[in-house]
Amino acid sequence: MLQVVCVKQVPDSDTRVKVAADGRTLDPNGVTLVLNPYDEFAVEQSLRVKEALAAGEVVAVSLGNAGVQTTLRNVLALGADRAIHLKSDTPAPDALAVAKALAEAIKGLDAGLVWLGKSAIDDDGAQVGPMLATLLGRPCVTNVCKFELAGNVAKVEREIEGGREQLEVPLPAVFTTDKGLNEPRFASLKGIMAAKKKSIEERPVDLGAPNVERLALELPPPRAAGRIVGEGAGAVAELVRALREEAKVL
């Protein structure tokens, strides 16, 4: 079975946000770009399925400028077989534009499973997976935290408020992955060496007109300075008083 894993390159979670001079984008200076943490679970699960079936191919797909090839190379080092780089020098305007480009690339691949992270930690969108599934006309489960393949049906779980949903999904299907699904592996030295020889196919894409327009990117208002109410258990009385009388939250 051929599986596709869609990955995104994002600023790492240590990033301190500075807004660029245009007032609309993140200042890229000093920002380290990494594989989106939720995509690690997607990559890992595709590799586990391939290992369990002892057959098939994992194709990594990423959209972005030339820089995303570093991330694709990482995914190849983890064990993906080949990669497709959907090349666009302009940043993707919105999730629908990305989903359309991915759908176009995946349509011709006969993929039994398509994997994505549940959201990217830069825009926190959580949209590309379900949009892609809808455009492909395939079943989709978001935020998968448990996955089991039984022939041509996947049995999965996702977290909902106060509990979990169990679902059954016929393949081919699209899944977005949540923390808890698996423990992602690290790339081995052998994997890193092998990745150098694997193919990254470049395909230029045109993302079209924006479907959503960003007017501004702003920092949250700074929090008013707080205070230390005291030390040790002796501070509890004053804390409770402040919470009731000043903050009025008790």
């Binding site: 600023p11 946000v17 930690i121 830069d122 926190d124 960003r214 007017l215 920092l219 949250p220």
Partner: peptide
């Protein structure tokens, strides 16, 4: 309509307009 939403888990907020 203009929507305000957090990005990067609240490290920043974006304002979005809807052309469609």
């Amino acid at each position: 309509l203009v929507a305000t939403r957090p990005v990067m888990a609240g490290k920043a907020y974006e304002k979005l307009a809807f052309p469609l």
